[in-house]
Simulated assay, not measured.
Amino acid sequence: MTTADIYQAFADREARDVSPTYHRLAEAVARDPDLLASLDTLPEAKRQPNLLFGVVRLGGGPVDDPAAFREHVLAHWPDVAAQMRVRATQTNEAGRCAVLLPVLAALPQPLALLEVGASAGLCLYPDRYAYRYGDRRVGDGEPVLDCALAGTTPPDRRPEVVWRAGLDVNPLDVTDPADLAWLDALVWPEHRHRRDRLRAAAAVAAADPPLLVRGDLVDDLPALAARAPAGATLVVFHSSVLYQVPSARRAAFTALVRTLPGHWLANEDPAVLPHAATPEPPDGGFHNVLALDGKPLAWTRGHGQAVTWFG
């Protein structure tokens, strides 16, 4: 897939009807030979639309107008490229807890949660957030995570979590203004509700910080999993992470995680983590597949705004 294809696919699959700003930008980049030539000087894994757009926003560059965006990127390309080389898209969307909750609440309690690709660990608090599935509310507190749920009934409780840990090649700290600014820059421009949610979730994490370990998802996972307390159900989970992992390393991870005790909960693009048989998505938008121990359960939207159970 060429860089132009990547940006056009992002426009069509992910940004359309979700972020008009990023839809316009991605289509403009896909048609711009100068921007594409610049992006092609980067390693393939560093050419992602979200990474480029986030770096430009972090640096105060314009994203509302494609022509101004183009001028800014080309004029500041050495700085933009340097930031893209050292950063990664670490979107820490707490809203994804809403699609994980029906599974987490149904597992034997209490839980020991271990998130792979945890960023700042905001998805490690499904027991602290409140949820709204239509007119059904689960739990109290802030933030309140809204999710359209189809094909199953909302859970009647939140899980009991007695241990929470995250593994990441570059863990972020929500008490560090620079790290929080990067998380904020990764939220899409129109999504003020997600920005508010980020601040509320960051306050939860800052009040009771999780165990965040810098490490590799294959080499360092078994040792961290071994630190989970006895008597708790270990759940190793990840959400929109594996697309950043080379295919051979991805295969090594999926083979390893199946050997660990407890359960494996994945919420990933089916093009990245394929499953043998899934029904058609409920609409033409971008969807991940929620799977427990390799069994696909539901289609989910990328920021946790909807989940459609199979069958």
Rank of each mutant, 00 (worst) to 15 (best):
Ala223Lys: 15
Val99Thr: 14
Val169Trp: 04
Leu292Gln: 03
Ala225Gln: 08
Gln90Arg: 15
Ala276Pro: 08
Tyr7Ser: 09
Val272Arg: 08
His72Pro: 01
Leu100Gly: 09
Thr175Phe: 03
Gly311Trp: 00
Leu167Glu: 09
Trp264Val: 14
Ala277Arg: 15
Leu256Asn: 09
Leu292Ala: 05
Ala67Pro: 00
Pro126Trp: 01
His238Phe: 04
Phe310Gln: 07
Ala165Asn: 02
Leu265Ala: 05
Thr175Glu: 10
Arg194Cys: 08
Ala206Asp: 01
Phe253Ile: 06
Asn92Leu: 11
Val80Ile: 14
Pro177Ile: 10
Arg157Glu: 03
Arg301Cys: 11
Ala67Thr: 06
Asp220Val: 12
Leu242Met: 13
Leu167Pro: 13
Ala68Ser: 13
Thr3Ala: 08
Val272Trp: 06
Leu292Asn: 04
Val63Gln: 06
Leu122Trp: 08
Ala226Ile: 09
Tyr125Ile: 12
Ala30Gln: 03
Thr152Tyr: 01
Ala207Asn: 07
Gly302Pro: 12
Leu113Ala: 00
Val103Lys: 02
Ala9Glu: 15
Arg192His: 08
Val63Trp: 02
Thr91Ala: 12
Asp34Trp: 12
Ala150His: 11
Gly59Arg: 10
Thr91Asn: 07
His238Asn: 12
His76Met: 00
His23Ala: 05
Gly285His: 11
Arg128Val: 15
Asp184His: 15
Thr89Lys: 10
Tyr243Met: 15
Pro20Ser: 03
Arg197Lys: 05
Ala248Lys: 14
Gly294Ser: 06
Leu113Val: 03
Ala26Phe: 02
Ala251Glu: 14
Val307Trp: 07
Arg70Asn: 01
Tyr131Thr: 15
Ala11Lys: 03
Ala15Phe: 02
Asp168His: 02
Arg301Asn: 12
Arg195Asp: 08
Gly151Tyr: 01
Leu107Asn: 08
Arg194Phe: 05
Gly59Ile: 06
Gly231Pro: 08
Leu221Asn: 09
Leu198Cys: 04
Gln48Ile: 11
Asp65Glu: 01
Ala88Lys: 03
Ala68Ile: 05
Asp127Ala: 15
Ala276Tyr: 00
Ala165Pro: 01
Arg250Asn: 12
Pro20Gln: 03
His191Leu: 09
Ala226Leu: 07
Ala228Thr: 01
Trp309Ala: 15
Ala203Ser: 08
Ala230Trp: 01
Asp34Asn: 14
Leu114His: 00
Pro78Ala: 00
Pro229Ser: 11
Asp5Asn: 09
Pro281Trp: 04
Asp179Ile: 09
Phe286Asn: 00
Ala255Asp: 13
Ala165Gln: 06
Leu111His: 07
Leu211Tyr: 00
Ile6Met: 14
Ala30Met: 01
